[in-house]
Amino acid sequence: MRIDVISISDIVSVSGVSYAYNAVEVLSDISFSMQQGDYVGLVGPNGSGKSTLIRLLLGLLAPSKGTLSIFGSPHRELRNWNRIGYLPQKIHFLNPHFPSTVAEIVSLGLVANSDRKSRASENRQAVDRTLELLGIEDLKKKLIGSLSGGQQQRVFIARALVSSPELLILDEPATALDPGTRENFFGLLHDLNHQQRVSIILVTHDLGSVGVFASKLLYLDKKIVFYGNFDEFCKSDHMASVFGPSSQHIICHKHD
C-alpha cells in the first residue's frame, strides 16, 4: 500500500521511484518527501545510487517506475528553474582552458530566468552580491582556468546560489575546500537554511558533518535504509550494522 497524497508544503516528493541502467536496477522503490526548511544529508557507499537519485531530482533522468515531483509538480511542468540551485561534483569541470570569466560562469546560474533579457542589470547585481557573499569578488574578471581548485569550487557554489534558490542540491560540495573555507561554507548553508528557510540536499561521504549540519539523514543503498532525524539514526540499530560497533561513539558523539 502506498499513499500518494502530496502535501502542498512538500518541496520534494518521491513516490515508489525505481531506476534501471541497462536493465540493472540501481534504485528501487524510493519514497520520501522533504518539506520547506529541511536540510537532508544524503549518504551511502559508492554505487549506492546517490548520484542517480540527484539526477532524478534534477530531472536529468526519468524514473523507470514511480513518480517524482518538485514544488508540487513534475519536472516538465516546472517553469521557474531558478528555484533549484545545483552544485555538480567537481569532476564535471574538465576543460582548464575554457575562456570564461568567473562572472560569466556564475551568471549561468541565472540562465533559466525566462525574462532575463529585460533584467540584465538585476542579474549583474545578483552575480556581484553572490561573489561578495562567498568572499571572491576580487576573482570576478579572472579566467576560470587560472584559479585554484578551492577557488573554482567557490565559483560553482556561487553559480548554485546566484538565483536565490529555494532548494539547493549539492553533490559533495566540500571537496577541494580548505578547512577554513569549508567551515565558512557550512556556516553559510546553515544561515541560508535557518534564516531564509532554504531547503538543502547535501550529498556527502562524511557522516560526521551530516550530524553537525543537517537536520535529517537519508541513508541510501539502492533502497532507502534510513530516512529521519540524525539522532534517531544514532539510536537505531542501523548505525552499528552499517558503520560498525564503535561508530556510534565516534560519529554521534560529535553531535551535540
Binding site: L58, L60, P88, R159
Partner: peptide
Amino acid sequence: FNEILSITFDEEFARASGI
C-alpha cells in the same frame, strides 16, 4: 547566447537549470 554558453561550459548543468 546565455544558453549556448551554459551548454558549452557544462551540458549537464545546463540541463539541470532547465535549458
